[in-house]
């Protein structure tokens, strides 16, 4: 069968979100009800996309999983422990829309940063960084500074950095948002390749329906103000290849996601 659709047999939950609400500036005049009653379980090894209109709380949900912000109500469990503990245990890697590379560090030094914080010695760091550079096909660029790379290359470095310490969970917030269509499709293929090789759990925020469908086992559609889960669509496309983007199944899934989004838009 195709191993793209079947999660690992004894699927432990990578992320369990239980009736989570998030209110920013609670009780102040600028109060924002960003998320309401979110229940979401993500099985280990799956590739899940979060999609929805701007401001519906996708980034907030992702940051809750990373314990970069905390729920007003409900609980977030990552790898069977509190999100905070998972953060302290460095259980996840994160990549953002802007690559967030440190411009004073070379590409290699950027990739080594998490390892340095984890107290790895120099030789180990070097070795892992080289391995990561190979993975994202930037082997010749290790000694360059970020400003010497194109936007797509910078994003690849950011992904290599997020993967460098081999976290089982990868949180990505519109990592390809700033890229042109060509580079974007290329990067999607690369991320899928990495996912197939490593079988990480990936939570991927995007605005692009085709991107969500092409990449994921599961597309979670969100509705705005307050953010809720409007639909949870599984994508049975099997192992992706060059023809996937032109297959009937691909278009069917795109339609399904689009309708879910449109339905959500029309209810307001």
């Amino acid at each position: 069968m195709n191993d793209h659709d079947t999660p690992p047999s004894k699927a432990a939950a990578a992320v369990e979100i239980d009736s989570v609400s998030k209110v920013f500036n609670l009780g102040k005049p600028n109060e924002v009800h960003a998320l309401d009653g979110i229940d979401l379980t993500i099985d280990d090894g799956t590739f899940v996309s979060l999609i929805g209109p701007s401001g519906c709380g996708k980034s907030t949900l992702l940051r809750l999983m990373g314990a970069l912000t905390h729920p007003t109500e409900g609980s977030v469990v990552v790898n069977g422990k509190s999100a905070d503990q998972a953060r302290l245990d460095r259980d996840y890697g994160m990549a953002f829309q802007t690559s967030g590379l440190f411009e004073w560090r070379t590409v290699t030094q950027n990739i080594e940063l998490p390892l340095q914080l984890m107290g790895w010695d120099k030789a180990q760091r070097k070795e892992r960084a080289l391995e990561m550079l190979d993975l994202v096909k930037l082997a010749e660029f290790g000694d360059h500074y970020p400003r010497e790379l194109s936007g797509g290359m910078q994003q690849r470095v950011a992904i290599a950095r997020a993967l460098s310490f081999r976290p089982q969970l990868l949180l990505m917030d519109e990592p390809f948002g700033a890229l042109d269509e060509m580079t974007r499709e290329h990067m999607q293929t690369e991320v899928l390749e990495i996912w197939e090789k490593t079988r990480k759990t990936i939570v991927f925020v995007t605005h692009s329906i085709p991107e969500a469908v092409f990449l994921s086992n599961r597309v979670v559609v969100m509705s705005p103000r307050p953010g809720r889960i409007a639909a949870d669509i599984s994508v049975p496309l099997g192992r992706r290849n060059f023809d996937t983007r032109e297959s009937q199944g691909f278009f069917d899934s795109i339609t399904e996601v689009r309708e879910a989004l449109r339905f959500e838009g029309s209810t307001r």
């Binding site: 970069l68 953060r87 302290l88 460095r90 890697g93 994160m94 802007t98 967030g100 940063l113 340095q116």
Partner: peptide, 21 residues
């Protein structure tokens, strides 16, 4: 930039590490 600080938080870096690095 906020992204840089969040990244450091995601690596569970200490305040001093954020200052230094």
């Amino acid at each position: 930039g906020a992204t840089k600080i969040e990244l450091m938080d995601s690596y569970a870096a200490s305040k001093w590490e954020i200052t230094r690095m």
